[in-house]
Each structure stands twice: as structure tokens, then as C-alpha cells.
Amino acid sequence: MIVGQQKDFDEIKKMISAYSRILVLGCQTCVAISFAGGMREVEILASMIRMDRKMAGQDVEIKEEAILRQCDFEFLDSVKDLVAGCDVVLSLACGIGVQAMAERYPDKVILPGLNTTFMGVTEEMGIWSERCAGCGDCILDKTGGLCPIARCSKGLLNGPCGGSVNGKCEISPDVDCVWQLIIDRLKALNQLEKLEEIFPIKDWSVSGHGGTRKIVREDLTA
């Protein structure tokens, strides 16, 4: 799941300061689940903006809406009229949704209301953490199902480093050293020998270092 975090209200305020007809558009999938851009957040943000404008003595007209996914063009069509009726769309989708909106509505200003933070899990209600960096070349088979690319502060492939103390990373005592976790887990699985193999230098070309990535499946295309 993509985890997002709403931008600071002051930043949003500045972004939209020049507009008086605003559509706050939520996305009801990933960012809704991470409490950053679902209908619940749309209502709260809209209310905040209205109050802020009222205090400044300025008029504002805000429309509130949320669609299932802002990353699929078909869904974007359903808000056509709403978009037409506003000066600006404040999108509470992840970066993908914001771009999709911009692509679908080329002559409308689309602004991002949140920061797309990472791909991760809900550890528990209200706590999310990163799990995957989308490197394009998965090695979880070798590391006991724990990813050192996303979860080691240095992204080390042959860890741990000297900064691993009592199972914690040197950057903070609150952060687990993923290499410690990998070793513990492989030990429990009786597969410690897997670590004897030295990881070769990673091919980062599939991670975006080789340019924007694209997948084409011939069997599915029109």
C-alpha cells in the first residue's frame, strides 16, 4: 500500500491562496487507508480551509468529493463537471493520482495536498512503516523475507554494519537493525547458510536509474 501524509496546513494554504473556487478531491484507496486522503480527510481539510478564509474575511467556495482511485483515468471522468466548476483542484491522492489528474485535465491547475511517503504496512491503527523501495529486482528470497534495500538505513546488501547495537540501528534506538532481524529470522528458519553467499553488486538500472520504467504486456494490449 502507498502511504501518504497530508502536507502542513500552512503549505496548503499558501498553495491555494490565489484561488476562491476549490475542489478538494480525495482518493478512496491507499491514501484513505493511511488516513491522508480519503473522504474523512477531505471533509476535515475543507472545513479547515473554510474557517481559515472566513477568519481572513475572504470568500471561498469549496466542493468536496472523493473517487475510488485517482490513478485510473476512467474514474477521473466521473468528476468532470466538478472540475469544470472550480479554479483549482486540491488533490489528496498520491503523486500518481495528482499526475493522472493533471494529464486528464490539461488546462486545470492540480495541486498536491499530501506527500507520497512510502510503500509500507499498517503496523497497527495509526502506525505505518516502510517495507518496499520498488527496486525492481526482488531479493527477499535470500534475506528471509525482510528487505535490506528499504529497511536498512544504508541500504546495505551485506550487513550488518558496525552501527548495529543490540539489534538497533545507529540512527536511532527506535529503529530496528534489519540485518539483525534477517539473521534472527534465518536462524529460526535454519537457513543461516544463505548468508554465506556474498551479494554481488546490485543492478540499479531496473530501479529507475536506467530511466523511467515502463512495462508492456503484449498479450494484454489492444
Binding site: R40, E43, I44, S47, M48, R50, M51, K54
Partner: peptide
Amino acid sequence: IIHILKALE
């Protein structure tokens, strides 16, 4: 949260 905000609004 929305109820509190709406009351103030």
C-alpha cells in the same frame, strides 16, 4: 474531528 470542526465552522 469533523464534528468538532463543523461546530466551530
